[in-house]
Design a binder for these strands. Sequence first.
DNA 1: TGCCAGGAAGTCC
DNA 2: GGACTTCATGGC
Length: 290
Amino acid sequence: MQINIDKTAIVIDAVEHFDLKQTLECGQCFRYECLDNNEYIIVAKGYMLHVKQEGDRLSFYNSTMEEVQSIWIPYFDLDRDYGEIKRRLNEKDNLIGEAIEQKSGVRILNQDFFEMLITFIISQNKQIPHIMQIVARISERYGEYIGEWNAKKYYSFPTPEVLGQATEQDFLDMKAGFRAKYLVDACRRIINRELCEEELYQMDYEEALEKIQIINGVGEKVGNCVLLFGIGRREAFPIDVWMARIMERLYFNKPAKKEEMQAFAKEHFGEYGGYAQQYLFYFARDNRVK
DNA sequence: TGCCAGGAAGTCC
DNA sequence: GGACTTCATGGC
């Protein structure tokens, strides 16, 4: 991968299988702001990033060469061969091809575990814009100031220790609703190490999925999202209402149980389940599949 | 106004 | 063990 220093930015030319807008707006990320066409402010990994894509050129405006290499290339999953992933998925069947083609610039972001845990507990029974609002409130109140753009200030996502100081009432004030008690429970169990990130990396997928559900408010769907987006388990296959709709349409042709769909995904997509899921989810949601 | 949202837990039988 | 209900909040 060729990385260059321009007058105003660190630049990567000839990026493939990547579209900044699709990758941010496909439903996996909740901390971005669109400035202009394919130009964004992103908050991740404790940094505020100003980034823009023009064709196959990706420009990082407020970053160093070292940060691009050590933080942003891994974050955007840019050192993975998505051409190979797409070939493998297209070998499985000819039904997923349309979704891959329409959403071909999606990559799975490598986000932080604790942030994904809290974010996806919030996500249950909520629409994406509202999830983003609540995560922004949490960061403003408990995160650290990391920069501003156009007079708007940005804040990092808090650590478990800091967010652990919030009470159920605090989460209610931030409009988390009935999830407030789950959030308190999650912080507590992370702080006292009933669940820790390191052990999840060492467990196999099934074991990790079971373990993460010790947290009150984390079930199979939320657990899979955390493993996929926060622990890098690409075999994870979260099934929400949109995934159920698109799978019933493409693979079952009738109403199906979640358990059946989960088993099908494991057998059919295997280690590529997470990628398949994201192409299908974004396709279904963006096209309002009923 | 009623229905739904990247669901999970509680409660019934 | 499966089906049904409840849980806040906001957008349409």
